[in-house]
């Protein structure tokens, strides 16, 4: 449903830029399967910057191809995964990361799930306690008397 969802209008633009054909080309791939697997995983985290929300692993754009080759060059040069990402970010900015970094600017983004869960949990807990307290409050003297009367009548 990606671009074909309700966003029919967005479809044309996206595909005109990025094309729907096969993205990763056989001639780009590294001979070592372990290194290639790392390259694929890293590619899935990097954005094709001329596309709409598409990773360089999915995109057929020229720029995506250049980035894929760059990632593989860095891996072959012995960079760790983090070093590869740092290198790409230093050249293209954080926009290229599909998973934003933990930073003060992105604090709200990353904290949302925990805050919501915690806040919702506390609200639910308080509601239970408040209502629960009411429920377990003993009967008043008048109610006790009324109850006794009813019970006696039944006997």
């Amino acid at each position: 449903m990606k671009r074909a969802g309700a966003g029919l209008a967005a479809v044309g633009l996206l595909l005109a830029l990025c094309g729907p054909a096969v993205a990763v080309q056989p001639d780009e791939m590294l001979a070592d399967p372990a290194l290639e697997a790392r390259a694929r995983d890293l590619s899935a985290e990097l954005r094709c910057m001329v596309c709409q929300n598409q990773s360089i692993d999915d995109s057929d754009a020229e720029l995506a191809r250049d980035l894929r080759v760059l990632v593989r060059e860095r891996i072959e040069a012995g960079d760790s995964d983090a070093e590869v990402l740092d290198y790409v970010v230093s050249r293209y900015g954080e926009f290229v990361l599909l998973k934003p970094r933990f930073s003060p600017r992105n604090a709200v983004l990353w904290a949302t799930p925990a805050l919501f869960l915690l806040g919702g949990g506390i609200l639910a807990f308080l509601a239970f306690r408040r209502r629960g307290g009411k429920a377990t409050a003993g009967l008043s003297a008048e109610e006790e008397a009324a109850l006794r009367k009813v019970l006696e009548r039944n006997e």
């Binding site: 990606k2 671009r3 074909a4 967005a10 993205a23």
Partner: peptide, 23 residues
């Protein structure tokens, strides 16, 4: 929509977390 994207867009994904999908 998910199946449509899966067979039509040609890279076999079924969910992309695209803003339009999220909407």
């Amino acid at each position: 929509g998910s199946y449509w994207a899966y067979y039509e867009l040609g890279w076999g994904g079924f969910w992309f977390w695209d803003p339009v999908e999220n909407a």
